[in-house]
Simulated scan of single mutants.
Amino acid sequence: MAHDTHEQIDAVTGVSTTGHSWDEIQELNNPLPRWWLWSFYATIVWAIAYCIAYPAWPLVSSYTTGVFGWHSREAIVQDLDALKAQRSGMTTKLAQASLDEIRQDPELFAFARAQGKAAFGDNCAGCHGAGGAGAKGYPNLNDDDWLWGGSLQEIEQTIRFGARASLDKGHQGTMPAFGRDGMLKRQELSQVSDFVRSLSGLPVEKGANIAGGAKIFADNCAACHGDKGQGNRELGAPNLSDQIWLYGSDKVVIMDGLWNGRGSVMPAWNDRLDDTTIKALTLYVNSLGGAQPH
């Protein structure tokens, strides 16, 4: 690359050059198109006019308000107020009706589901996913496997008071740390893990002591999960005989849960959401999965 500061005239076009050349290619000094320049000047004029008409410049403790006195935040508030007024009739019906009554009214149920879907996206999708499909450690709400029960009343209780959220009315069941707290040895954890996998028809290691694992399970796990691992919704103990696994079904994952325990927290929304929103959210979540109305 070469750089020449002396102006030259291109022999082919007769246009002066900028004095820059790359690999013996000269840069012509052509003016910008008029339409482009006028467009550029117009944006400058528009920017100045916008700064005068609307809020634009920050000050020490405030900002310029603009001659029109228009604010996007106020416009949003007005739009929301108008939407609330438009929905006020259905919202009142939703507030006054019971969950079962709403479920039996097609129009009110459709309204509640729409409201619940919006509330779910704002408050629940961060853990359960936008469509309620869940993730590792966060239940899938689209299937029929409910840790704490899938009826309208059970879902409402879970939403209102949470799980392990330090509220008396919330769910309190916790998976003990059998290994960390010295209740079971690692070999015993391995045996009971093989037995648990066998309950749902998963393959186990060759020569696994299934009988020994069954004995350990009966002594330590059956009180919560049931004799055959069918689970207990009152305690939030998962059904171990199906193939729906909250944390995964690999043996190393099961052993980790047995060693360290499980105790994830579901937030309580009773003081964060109003009663009408909780109703709508309950109906929406119920409609995603097993749809157990009673």
Rank of each mutant, 00 (worst) to 15 (best):
H225S: 03
I159P: 00
S190F: 14
G182Y: 09
K169D: 10
A223G: 12
H171A: 05
G173I: 02
L189I: 13
N239R: 11
S166L: 14
S193P: 07
N209P: 05
I216D: 00
M183G: 15
G231P: 00
F195M: 05
C221W: 02
K228Y: 12
P238W: 00
A208Y: 04
A177S: 15
G213H: 00
L189E: 04
L199D: 01
V192F: 04
S200V: 08
S198V: 09
S198A: 12
L167G: 07
R164P: 02
N209E: 06
G201N: 10
V196I: 15
S193L: 09
A165E: 08
L199G: 07
I210R: 02
A218F: 06
P238H: 04
G201K: 05
N209C: 11
Q172F: 06
E188Q: 15
A223P: 08
E188W: 14
H171G: 01
V204E: 05
A223T: 12
G236W: 01
L202W: 08
A214P: 01
D194A: 11
D181K: 15
A211N: 14
E188F: 15
F217V: 02
D168G: 09
L189F: 07
D194N: 13
K185Q: 14
K206H: 11
G207E: 10
D219Q: 11
F161I: 08
L202Q: 12
G213A: 04
A177Q: 13
G162L: 07
S190G: 10
S190T: 11
L167P: 04
D219G: 06
E234P: 01
V204W: 02
M175K: 08
A165C: 12
A211L: 10
G213C: 05
A218C: 06
D194M: 06
K206Q: 14
D227H: 13
G179H: 01
V192S: 00
D219H: 10
C224M: 10
C221Y: 00
A222P: 03
R180G: 08
D168C: 12
F178S: 01
K185A: 14
K206Y: 15
I210S: 02
L189C: 05
R186T: 11
A177C: 12
D194E: 14
